[in-house]
């Protein structure tokens, strides 16, 4: 089995992995970081989005061995001692989550979106979140949350 070394949520990690293991399975099953979710088998839903070297990546589209040497951030890294990240706070304030299953991926994708576009219009957000499916909210509150979260992140 290959051995990989990477940084996950700021912690150095060295682990043996079975070569075909997807990054999402590695995070969930080997590192027990279950905040990253699996909602599909065709890379459509975005529930699995994490940051790989600062970019939003669907972690079901990548092998764990491809993350060798990478810096990974998952949803578990965001809140600081019980204080939510501004984007998480905006999701809470705007009621942008119901069942919460899409939420970790939504939040990670939204943070990456706002990093590229600090003041996104409604359209920017709707287009930018095309790769993340939510069945509960009808997206309206998510869109509001991302714009409010962007403002929180700017301030």
């Amino acid at each position: 089995m290959p051995t990989i070394s990477l940084t996950v949520n700021g912690q150095p990690v060295t682990e043996e992995v079975d070569a075909p293991t997807l990054l999402v399975k590695f995070l969930r099953e080997q590192l027990k970081l279950t905040g990253t979710h699996v909602g599909c088998d065709t890379s459509q839903c975005g529930a699995c989005v994490v940051h790989v070297n600062g970019e939003a990546v669907k972690s079901c589209t990548m092998l764990a061995v491809q993350a060798d040497g990478a810096e990974i951030l998952t949803i578990e890294s965001l809140a600081n001692n019980g204080t939510l990240h501004p984007m998480q706070q905006a999701f809470h304030d705007k009621h942008a989550l119901q069942c919460g299953f899409c939420t970790p991926g939504m939040v990670m994708a939204s943070i990456a979106l706002v990093r590229d576009n600090p003041d996104p219009s409604e359209d920017d957000v709707r287009q930018g979140l095309e790769g993340n499916l939510c069945r509960c909210t009808g997206y309206q509150n998510i869109v509001q949350a991302v714009r409010a979260g962007a403002k929180n992140m700017r301030d």
């Binding site: 099953e29 970081l33 949803i75 809470h92 989550l97 919460g100």
Partner: peptide
């Protein structure tokens, strides 16, 4: 009233079936 379940679900601490091993 804002939701009390949000904190858990927003921080990756929700417990869905697949999170139970």
């Amino acid at each position: 009233l804002k939701r009390s379940e949000d904190f858990r679900l927003l921080t990756g601490k929700g417990k869905y079936v697949d999170d139970i091993s």
